[in-house]
Design a binder for these strands. Structure first.
Lengths: 339, 339
DNA sequence: AAAAAACAAACAAACGTTTGCGCTGAATTA
DNA sequence: TAATTCAGCGCAAACGTTTGTTTGTTTTTT
């Protein structure tokens, strides 16, 4: 016996012979409604099992209490962790989370952004696809006063709000660690050149070497597309050098693991003939017999939380003057697996 | 120079001196609108950068093209994979995905369901929190004609639509595999006794042994709380048996890895002194020197896809007679790592 | 040439809620 | 007693869109 028509504010009004505005105000505990009326309304509402139609409210209020999150792959621990942080923060303020995976595809990223804009999300949190160069689909959002916060994979321009891993700090730690272990020829496997982190990593690398008065050899810096094949190619070029590196800094643990496999296929034993340090500190490292020597924890949840906080403050912020774009750096921590 | 007011259908109508209904129909390529008018409307729409206000449409159409997904933890590979499957399927039909993590907390699960219902999602996909016994918050949804599909952690009752791993089939494979390898004393590390899968696993185990006319020794069946400590305890009891198992079937790869670590601490070498088979087939297994001998792939993405397909068909399905509740079992596949 | 059919566009209601304003009657004040 | 206040509630517009019905105009038919 289904009750096809859901109870509305109108229905309550009719049954009590009062106006809808009174019902609305009564349900919101508005001061100009008499106590007697209020309780009559609230009782009937409960009795009928009334629940406000959020789509109507969203429409009327011109806000949806929903924020969009766009990221490359949900399945990567880093991003899943970031989402948890985001969800926790926004839920505390009654916001919901709409998710879109770009699969590292720029076109998909654009499509998701458009859909979210039309759905009238109140704000968007983004981690860029690995090949996003053109940011037009984000600047377009300014026209709609739609706040955006980037995290982890952030654009270079600092006209945007962003939260990211403190690459100089982390990379400095990593390279210093390797140098303390005696390494002088340290290779790098970066991501694609479009990624801001690739440049940052290289820059810090050069700074550290310069400080130590070591000569810089840019042939030690390789780029890869983050796939297993790309990693193998990068390894191939690095190992083919006249003076190959004795240690390698890899963009993340996944790449490091692929690189280690490649090295093994060339009869180079990890943590003996060659050494790796990478970023992410995946939980699985604990189970590896032969993990990267060290990995830098990037605190994904903290990044997500911070991004969500900034977004919420932008959403809440009234007034014509926009808040200054924030550029938050989350310091990582070098976790040593092999001493 | 911000264009605060977004262009609406009304605006277009005013500028062209025609009615809003004509504009609406023109934008939808309605046959009763003249060619000339159509193109005038469409051109102006493009020029103004008109985008339909989805909140208004949602409200008017009484559907949101959004489906809700409720699951325990996004960070678990299995669930992240399932989401990807869900997203892929529903996106192809222009649906969006609203996510809620229950964190295995029943109250949170209820709150999420209520919020999603009020948001008027068109349907919900759920993987139950591990402590959910009472299903009232789901039966309540029938009143709203809100279709629900469960996956992975499904209720026992078959009045619901559900998609789950085929436990008997998978477990049969696993045990047969171990027996072919010559093992006769096979231990089990289950999850908590409350989990439906624990019982299913044990049942199948007994059936297989019975078929092979082997005597059943229930002291070989251990339970754990899925933590590292719980796993160690389970291992301790199993190894302390008078006739300890030569192989162990573990509820999932994480538990297997903890168990392997424990065994190692007792100087039992994995894949030599003792053997493991587990469920999940985590991608990281490829990088392990010493993985479980085999693991059962549960195809999370396929489970997600199937659940999404069923949900979409329910959403699309018109008519008073509801579709028969489906109970889909997704067969797993034993992936052998060590031969 | 008149009637019928076909086309093109306008009208208006509806979806459920919020909210500024106005109205009524009773209580308070002068 | 008359003027003022104010508590308590109703009216109506508005948010942007869709869609059934109606109106007016042109074309076709007989």
């Amino acid at each position: 016996m289904k009750n096809k028509k859901l109870p509305t504010i109108k229905e309550i009004a009719k049954q009590l012979n009062i106006s809808v505005s009174t019902v609305s105000r009564a349900l919101h505990d508005h001061p100009s409604i008499g106590l007697r009326t209020k309780s009559r309304v609230q009782e009937l509402a409960k009795e009928l099992g009334y629940e406000p139609n959020q789509t109507a409210i969203f429409f009327k209020q011109r806000r949806t209490f929903t924020i969009g999150v766009v990221l490359p792959y949900l399945i990567e621990d880093f991003f899943a962790g970031a989402i948890s942080g985001i969800e926790e923060v926004v839920n505390a303020s009654k916001y919901n989370v709409l998710i879109g995976q770009s699969n590292d595809d720029v076109e998909r990223e654009k499509a998701i952004i458009t859909a979210m804009k039309n759905q009238r999300v109140d704000g968007i949190i983004v981690s860029l696809s690995k090949h996003t160069k053109n940011l037009d689909h984000f600047t377009a959002l300014e026209r709609y006063d739609l706040p955006v916060v980037f995290f982890d994979r952030v654009p270079a321009s600092n006209t945007y709000n962003k939260v990211a891993f403190d690459m100089p700090h982390g990379t400095h730690q990593a390279i210093s660690f390797l140098m303390e272990k005696g390494h002088r020829r340290i290779g790098i496997i970066n991501g694609p050149k479009e990624m801001k982190s690739s440049k940052e990593r290289t820059d810090t690398y050069m700074q550290v070497l310069q400080k130590k008065r070591l000569k810089i050899d840019l042939s030690l810096v390789a780029y890869c597309d983050l796939t297993k094949e790309g990693t193998s190619l990068a390894m191939e070029t690095l190992l083919a050098l006249k003076h190959p590196p004795t240690a390698i800094l890899a963009i993340n643990d996944y790449v490091a693991l692929d690189a280690i496999q490649y090295a093994k296929s060339k009869n180079l034993i990890n943590n003996k003939d060659i050494f790796f340090v990478s970023y992410a500190n995946l939980p699985i490292s604990k189970y590896l017999e032969n993990p990267p020597m060290a990995s830098i924890e990037q605190y994904p949840k903290k990044q997500g939380e911070k991004a969500a906080e900034i977004l919420l403050s932008m959403i809440t912020h009234e007034g014509p003057d926009p808040l200054e774009p924030q550029n938050i750096l989350i310091p990582g921590e070098l976790v040593v697996h092999i001493r």
